[in-house]
């Protein structure tokens, strides 16, 4: 077990624990803070997978922007901040069964399909420049579409949320 696997195991354990807390905690603000741990863990995994640029984008956008947005959402909807016994609805067991079932099916498929396939050492580091070249070379139309989508979402959010 190489050092990278130790790092993976530590981060993964923290992520698993935090992810479970996100969906079970009784305090909304705590849920948001646990989500920070999961998202930071994802960024760490990106670094393990040699995708530094994505890792920093993950930190900037998710932890920097999306999380702040969530906290705003919590405040604007005046959600109870001091814990609430009533955060879950009545379908806890069916939902647990559904997600475990899904996990079982997909997990079996994954173990069956990829077994012990190793991720080899990268021969060449993917630099941010390569990523940019790929976006503006091969994926320019999807890129344009995404920018239109962001614009649409911006206008849509304003239209939906404004008081009139």
């Amino acid at each position: 077990m190489g050092p990278e696997n130790v790092v993976f195991a530590v981060i993964a354990a923290a992520m698993v624990f935090s992810a479970i807390r996100v969906v079970t905690t009784r305090n909304i603000v705590h849920a948001a803070l646990y989500l920070v741990i999961v998202l930071a863990g994802i960024a760490a995994q990106y670094i393990l997978l040699a995708s530094e640029f994505l890792a920093w984008v993950q930190v900037l956008i998710y932890i920097g922007a999306v999380l702040v947005l969530f906290l705003f959402g919590i405040m604007l909807t005046k959600a109870p901040m001091r814990g609430d016994n009533d955060l879950d609805n009545d379908q806890r067991w069916p939902a647990a069964v559904a997600s475990l079932f899904l996990a079982g099916v997909l997990g079996t498929i994954l173990i069956d399909g990829y077994g012990d396939v190793e991720i080899a050492e990268p021969e060449k580091i993917v630099r941010t420049g390569d990523l940019g070249r790929s976006i503006f070379h091969d994926w320019v139309i999807p890129f344009e579409v995404v920018s239109m989508l962001l614009l649409g979402a911006l206008i849509g959010a304003i239209v939906i949320a404004r008081r009139d």
Binding site: Q91, P94, A95, A98, S99, F101, L102, V105, L106, T108, I109
Partner: peptide, 15 residues
């Protein structure tokens, strides 16, 4: 809930 049940079953069938 039904959606995800159905997805899981679909995945099972495909597998």
């Amino acid at each position: 809930l039904w959606l995800f049940f159905a997805v899981a079953i679909l995945a099972l069938v495909v597998a």
